[in-house]
């Protein structure tokens, strides 16, 4: 299971002259739940946009199974990314379509299936995210959490090998965000997919991630990588510790640190 799925190589990202992050190097293994973390505005979501082919890196490359994403022509790029599903921050559902149409969209785009089969698939995907029976609803008629889950159903429509989630738990109550975390874990286990999550929710970082990278705003590069629990227990970088302990890094709290790390 430990084979490399995605390799980020010497990646630098910039909007024109404004460098956001530089010299990013990390690998994501198959079956990982990989968390990209860091403070607000450090470029987490931008990194995700680079990985899913929406934004061209200023320098460096991203390799999917050893195949370059940014050296490839657009047809190869599409083929590489077809095996990936993306859950956008606010769901990214098309508001003029019902949930069923939204989920069916990628399916009918790629596969030639009879209508009955498509609707069975849609019903199954919606049931997976706990939205059975909501086929005929428009996104605007649902709550934020439901929209996000519907977005997940659409991201999973084609049984992706790689699933990208941009802040899946942002704006959800703790219980819903826990449910979403469980769902992500469950999906990894049963679909054996690789899941990349952008988040800064500590609870969900410790609950789901088995590997991570920490982006820093000031130095504009990654300053830590590894399983979050290990980072919490072993890291000496004050910024990383500050982030992982919600700013409570005094010695009095070192026992808490140990406690969370051992949990």
């Amino acid at each position: 299971m430990d084979s490399v799925c995605i390799k980020v190589q010497n990646l630098s990202m910039a909007y024109d002259d404004f460098v956001i992050q530089r010299n990013l190097n990390f690998t994501i293994n198959r079956g990982d739940i990989f968390v990209i973390m860091g403070g607000s505005g450090c470029g987490k979501s931008t990194l995700l946009r680079h990985m899913i082919g929406l934004q061209r890196p200023q320098q460096g490359d991203i390799l999917y199974n050893g195949q370059s994403l940014w050296q490839a022509d657009s047809a190869t790029q599409r083929r590489i990314l077809q095996r990936a599903g993306v859950l956008f921050q606010s769901g990214g559902l098309l508001s003029s379509m019902t949930l069923a149409e939204n989920v069916a969209l990628p399916i009918t785009q790629v596969l030639q299936l009879p209508t009955k089969k498509v609707s069975e698939l849609v019903a199954y995907k919606l049931a997976l995210v706990g939205l059975a029976g909501f086929e005929d609803y428009y996104p605007a008629e649902l709550s934020g959490g439901m929209q996000k889950r519907a977005g997940l159903a659409r991201a999973m429509a084609l049984d992706p090998e790689i699933l990208f989630c941009d802040e899946p738990s942002a704006g959800l109550d703790p219980v819903s965000s826990k449910l979403l975390d469980d769902l992500i874990l469950n999906l990894r286990d049963s679909l054996s997919a690789t899941i990349i999550v952008v988040t800064h929710e500590l609870a969900s970082i410790f609950a789901i991630a088995n590997n991570s990278v920490f982006l820093d705003t000031e130095t504009r590069t990654m300053i830590a990588a590894g399983p979050p629990r290990q980072l919490l227990a072993e890291s000496t970088d004050p910024k990383v510790l500050n982030f992982l302990t919600r700013g409570q890094t005094s010695t009095a709290n070192s026992t808490i640190r140990q406690g969370v790390a051992n949990e």
């Binding site: 049931a127 997976l128 706990g130 059975a132 029976g133 469950n186 999906l187």
Partner: peptide, 9 residues
């Protein structure tokens, strides 16, 4: 199990 965990409302 996941698909049947939340019954249709």
């Amino acid at each position: 199990t996941l698909a049947q965990s939340v019954p249709e409302r």
